[in-house]
């Protein structure tokens, strides 16, 4: 119980930081406390699906491939601020529980804030129920949270990939979610410019039931293509595998 108590307060802390961040943002923004998605234009409402910092065409690389009994997730190590590389050892992933990994990109601040909010809540679930929330349920939870945020005063602009291994069903799952909270379970996924470079490679070479070595080979093909074609150096990929044994990092990218 005491254990639980500590962790509940952990969650509250998480909420609190989120609130502070919100308030800080609100204070700094001008007096347009309206959902930026909905702009009132004289008599009719219009929607702006593209925020000034376009979230669907980011140079941040998020890649995911679902194999036979595992999911491979790769994220770029460069922390970008416009065209400036601020850090070259960035980790754009959070482990949600033993078998679920969340990778994210989007507006700076929103990304980590939202990812850690999700992380705290899935961990809270694990503590309370002494068992992990399965990947599909995590994805559903994330989608619901993001969807309600979408129509709030200040929506999160975060694109995500959720890779995980469902221990009960004994199968890997990969979810693609964009900042509008559209979600889809797909065999391979990407976000940002990486989509345009990698999806065609994956279309051509992906096969059902590939082993780790094959998928790593495929990921290397994507990596080479990105290195060749991307206008900036994204400082390499951080590659992680999620399978029945948990989450581990892979070397050599």
């Amino acid at each position: 119980m005491r254990f639980q108590g500590i962790l509940i307060s952990n969650l509250q802390l998480c909420h609190a930081t989120r609130l502070q961040a919100r308030q800080a943002k609100l204070a700094s923004s001008t007096f347009t406390n309206r959902n930026p998605l909905l702009t009132k234009n004289s008599s009719h409402l219009t929607i702006n699906l593209h925020t000034p910092t376009s979230t669907d065409l980011t140079m941040d690389v998020l890649l995911g491939i679902r194999g036979k009994d595992f999911v491979l997730i790769a994220t770029s190590k460069a922390f970008l601020h416009g065209i400036t590389v601020v850090k070259h050892t960035d980790d754009k992933t959070r482990a949600l529980n033993d078998h679920t990994l969340l990778a994210f990109s989007g507006e700076a601040g929103d990304t980590i804030q939202f990812a850690e909010f999700i992380q705290a809540n899935t961990q809270l679930y694990t503590m309370r129920h002494s068992s992990d929330l399965p990947v599909s349920s995590v994805a559903s939870f994330v989608r619901t949270e993001l969807a309600s945020s979408l129509r709030s005063r200040h929506p999160y602009t975060v694109n995500m990939l959720i890779g995980g291994y469902d221990v009960k069903k004994e199968q890997p799952e990969l979810y693609w979610l964009d900042y509008l909270a559209s979600s889809a379970e797909i065999p391979y996924a990407a976000h940002g410019y990486a989509q345009y470079y990698c999806l065609s490679i994956l279309d051509a070479h992906y096969k059902k039931g590939m082993g780790v070595d094959e998928v790593v080979g495929l990921m290397k093909d994507c990596y080479e293509e990105l290195k060749r074609r991307m206008p900036i150096d994204f400082k390499g990929l951080l590659v992680k595998v999620v399978d029945k044994d948990g989450i581990r990092e892979l070397e050599g990218f």
């Binding site: 989608r143 969807a147 964009d178 509008l180 909270a181 559209s182 979600s183």
Partner: peptide
Amino acid sequence: GLATDVQTMHS
């Protein structure tokens, strides 16, 4: 329509 709303409406 918008996929996110398709999913939201479905649930």
